[in-house]
Design a protein around this nucleic acid. Sequence first.
DNA 1: AACCTTACGTCAACACCATTGACGTGTAAA
DNA 2: TTTACACGTCAATGGTGTTGACGTAAGGTT
Lengths: 237, 237
Amino acid sequence: MSERVVPEGRRQRRRPTKQGAVLSERLIVETALRLIAQHGAEALSVRRLGAALGADPTALYRYFRNTDALLLAVADEIIGRAQEGWAATGDWRTDLRELGLRIHGCYQAYPQAAALAAHRTTGRPYETRAVERILGVLRSAGFPDPLAVRIYHAFVDQALAFAAQDAAALALPPAAREKEAEVWHAVYGRLSPETHPNVAATLPLLAADMRDSGYPFALELMLAAVAALRPEPSPEG
Amino acid sequence: MSERVVPEGRRQRRRPTKQGAVLSERLIVETALRLIAQHGAEALSVRRLGAALGADPTALYRYFRNTDALLLAVADEIIGRAQEGWAATGDWRTDLRELGLRIHGCYQAYPQAAALAAHRTTGRPYETRAVERILGVLRSAGFPDPLAVRIYHAFVDQALAFAAQDAAALALPPAAREKEAEVWHAVYGRLSPETHPNVAATLPLLAADMRDSGYPFALELMLAAVAALRPEPSPEG
DNA sequence: AACCTTACGTCAACACCATTGACGTGTAAA
DNA sequence: TTTACACGTCAATGGTGTTGACGTAAGGTT
């Protein structure tokens, strides 16, 4: 039997399911995204997705080789949404900042899916486009190829890593999230200044700062360091 | 029945299993770590752990409420190991670099526990000690408190985010991991230079660079940027 | 309009998973 | 020596992803 999946381009016979739904790769991805958004990452199972689609669960295997392939498609969809309407301005620093914040922000919109998919290389169209664009920004800013590639790698991994990290926090059940925020007062606030002088000295600052994501500042630090690596310092400064 | 777990302190009747093993919380945690290290991420299941212990799988539930509780115990052990033998040298840059690489590296050794626990604030002793130490490095390097706190936040989040990110990649089933590595040749290698000129121009560099973690370079970039923020450069250098 | 070919939705089955309730044995305290 | 109960074991439940076989209806061909 070997291949039961037919690539999306060659599909011809769209037969409605018993319950009347007409399946497609796109419909399945969107349904999966909705399922995850509404009922959490653990709600995504083949059987539940089948039920949500109004089809036999195993019908999925006509569209995706396995659940991992489906997950990659979901990840790519998110990457696509992150780039919607973006265009290069010509200023590399502005462009990278914008892309980083967009990627991070878009994953936050689907925390449960992000936690599942942010660490995958999909090799799908939206992802390849993002890679192409970021490399384009760096190369036309004058970074030599080996350096551009290293910076690309650090930049992308940082954006995705923070996205997954912050998404995981958002994806916690509200009670657990609340409790985790309290730890800074409940535990760190009670540490003795003798054993933990530095924590004690900075506690109010700490408790306030840790409420938000560390990404924007980390991104600025990276951009500043990258600027210093640029071969010919532009008049900008 | 409700509580089938007896806290470690109150245990009295240690009965050997059919296969002769005498169970304990400590033995279970260590066996779990060994299982993970030796047979990969997917090897940790209740059944396999039971087999490795020489006990009925469900005997675990006498020691941990569920698998999540077990994983947290395992994670706690890892945090401890990350700081084992570390001491400040007095050079803030060396110290931060060392701590960052240690945290990242230690999580890598136990990927799936890392992926699960790296985004939680535990408030437990090993964690508070790490916070205290990092803040200490920054403050005694002369950073004013508000800046020290922001840097601390970015530094820690980046270390943990990358740790979780890279751990998640390691925790994939071997088949998926293999495939992901191949994507750079199989997909990106076949993109047309007309639609993806920047990818085409840098492909060998890309494929080579993406095999390793982006963290070490990202860390260096952050340290460089932080150095530039330092108020009064000391004679040290 | 009749015919084929086959895509694809469906069904049944498999092997694995975490978790629970009931049970009885053997240990350690009294 | 007795007794209580801790805890290892077993059976069972309901979940998971995935595969192979099957038949139907959709489309292209004639």
